[in-house]
Design a protein around this nucleic acid. Structure first.
Lengths: 187, 187
DNA sequence: ACGGTAACTGTCCGATCGGTCAGAACTGAC
DNA sequence: GTCAGTTCTGACCGATCGGACAGTTACCGT
């Protein structure tokens, strides 16, 4: 074939991003990418030094964009700081959706394929968090609480002692859901 | 050796959970688990039918606990529903921390080891979201927003059109941070 | 003491992976 | 047409993985 270098490179990156975001980095082989991109595995390694080089090249734009955002808000006073950061972060996350998805590797795959059908449970949890509401704001907020608690509890660095962490997570979650607590502090 | 069956099984599960939560499922080999548990790889497969069986057995308690929670809150009226669900979910997440961590596989590993030092950026983002505050409530809320936006934007099912999603994410995030918006709707 | 059974292991296997390499196929400049 | 240089590929390699299996060891009821 011998197309121009940049064309094949672009095709490879596109295929890689798509496959990575579905099956994860480890779950996608060079052969998978090659088949999808319509070239040989050896051709991949002609254009990219290694599998990891492909990943790096895919994530670099998102990384740079985040760095730029942090630079931009660095000098702001506290009032504007939080707001600008939030807006910028949300925009970034939406722009680099597939890149974020690939970071999750195979959480989704693992959840689906397993004997334990976690998906159904997640749906139930989501529904309860949204107070059975089907309105978009409630659903979005429910998703956010789901993710927030999930990630925060997986945090490695000790943000706070467990008791404080628990109390703050509950309060923040109820705030996220715009739910005025009735007796949030009970066990 | 021939210890009692349950003792070796327990040791294997313990080693597996620890290694999975650090290096991820795919990133941990049966040999790794065997070495850590102090037995042969063949011994693993005597106690467990396959690698995946180990994973299933590890996740089952968390799955069951979540199912129990959903059952318990199923009949509640809306006022109590949200609150009980949030508290129950937070407690579950903290109780099954390591299980959750293993679901993330190697996000952490990927972030660290790469040329792009994402960790430093994440710290910066966290700091900005917390409005430079070092107080625990602010830090926890910042972590929650970080995770919330991250996961919500990775969502596959269309919760809402992108514009709605964006607006709701921003509003919810600011609510989570207990930040009264000054002009949250601007671009 | 002995035989059955549960616990355990060394060794091997096929599959798959990321990566190498020599050379074929194609291109554009002259 | 020729030829240098780029692009691409089939075939191969070593490593590693999950798993199979026959055989060994330790335990225990009788």
């Amino acid at each position: 074939m011998a197309r121009t270098a940049s064309a094949m490179r672009g095709q490879i990156l596109e295929s890689a991003l798509r496959l990575f975001s579905v099956h994860g980095f480890r779950g996608t082989s060079l052969q998978d990418i090659a088949s999808d991109a319509g070239c040989s595995k050896a051709s991949l390694l002609y254009h990219f030094a290694s599998k990891e080089t492909i990943l790096t090249e895919l994530l670099t734009p998102a990384r740079d964009a985040l760095a730029t955002l942090l630079d931009r808000v660095a000098g702001l006073e506290r009032g504007r700081l939080v707001e600008e950061t939030v807006i910028g972060y949300v925009d970034l996350a939406l722009r680099f959706r597939r890149e974020i998805r690939l970071l999750f590797e195979d959480i989704a795959e693992m959840s689906c394929h397993q004997t334990l059908n976690v998906l159904e449970l997640a749906d139930g949890l989501l529904d309860a968090l949204a107070g059975h509401s089907r309105r978009a704001p409630s659903r979005v907020a429910a998703w956010m609480v789901l993710g927030a608690v999930f990630i925060t509890s997986a945090t490695e660095d000790e943000v706070a002692p467990d008791e404080v962490l628990r109390a703050e997570m509950i309060r923040s979650a109820l705030r996220t859901l715009d739910h005025s607590p009735q007796c949030a502090a009970d066990a």
